[in-house]
């Protein structure tokens, strides 16, 4: 009798959630816990509770308005985690207000049937530009996350459920490539590269923000070009203008290119749940 592991693996795969956002939520939750427990985040639990309360209520309201009361809440949860991880404020009202704006934007700022901005990115930028008492701490993760962080990310890729990682790898390749090039041109200490590689904020941005399949171009060629543009802009922001928060600024300022790239290269829109049948 032949022994095979195949049926076991298939059963296991079958038991795993089909929706990539479930994995995203698990990873974001573990990152947030690690941040609060081990990284001295200045996040208050009330701010987090208010983010989720306001965010999810906005999703409920908006789904009813568009006549889809049974719609999914997964994306809203992902956004609330994203905002909790990124946004810092010295008051209690900033987080819920931003959660409402971020999730509300998905239903209001739409082009060609897709929402335009990554909600967490838009929320953070609105807070940074318009609200008093709000900030982002790009150094909050430290730069020694290499082992743990990369392990998590690779884990999520291996699960094979999330698609469109091409944009993440292209972005990371371009960004780190330019950091390495700059290091060589300036004759800097090689530790500079290692320092950037272990940057938790870079990791999080690469795998959880720029990879949002709903807010990147549909066509693979367009996505790769887009990733390279965002990486170039982030490098310019960080090393040309010497301004902080390069990654979120680059994504925010480059997002309007997405509808243009979608018009140029046509392809099918992303679906979170694989089509049945």
């Amino acid at each position: 009798m032949e022994l095979s592991l195949r049926p076991g693996i298939d059963t296991l795969r079958g038991a795993l959630p089909k929706d990539a956002r479930v994995f995203q939520i698990l990873f974001l939750a573990s990152l947030l816990s690690m941040g609060v427990l081990a990284r001295d985040f200045t996040l208050r639990w009330e701010q987090m509770a208010l983010t989720f309360a306001a965010g999810l209520m906005t999703q409920v309201y908006a789904l009813h308005r568009i006549g889809m009361p049974n719609g999914s809440y997964l994306s809203a949860v992902v956004t609330c985690f994203g905002l909790s991880i990124l946004l810092r404020a010295d008051s209690l009202w900033v987080h819920p207000l931003i959660a409402i704006i971020a999730i509300g934007s998905k239903f209001v700022l739409r082009v060609n049937g897709k929402h335009l901005y990554n909600p967490a990115n838009l929320g953070v930028m609105v807070a940074l530009i318009l609200l008093p008492g709000a900030w982002v701490s790009p150094g909050q993760w430290g730069h020694d996350l290499i082992a743990a962080g990369w392990f998590l990310m690779l884990g999520s890729v291996v699960t094979g459920h999330a698609r469109r990682w091409d944009v993440s790898w292209m972005f990371l390749g371009c960004f780190l490539g330019m950091v390495a090039l700059r290091m060589l041109l300036l004759g800097q200490n090689p530790w500079v590269f290692v320092h950037q590689l272990g940057n938790g904020a870079l990791l999080l941005f690469t795998f959880f923000m720029i990879s949002d399949p709903m807010t990147i171009p549909n066509h693979r060629r367009a996505r790769l070009l887009y990733a390279a543009i965002v990486a170039g802009f982030a490098i310019f922001w960080q090393y040309g203008l010497f301004k902080p928060n390069a990654l979120v600024w680059a994504l925010f300022l480059c997002t309007p290119l997405v509808p243009l790239l979608d018009r140029w290269w046509k392809a099918e829109r992303f679906q979170w749940r694989p089509a049945t049948g």
């Binding site: 010295d90 008492g133 800097q188 530790w191 500079v192 902080p244």
Partner: peptide
Amino acid sequence: RATFPEDLMFQETADRE
């Protein structure tokens, strides 16, 4: 030398606590 390979870059936050 090993743990601070780059010069210190700063930002002013909105935190007033």
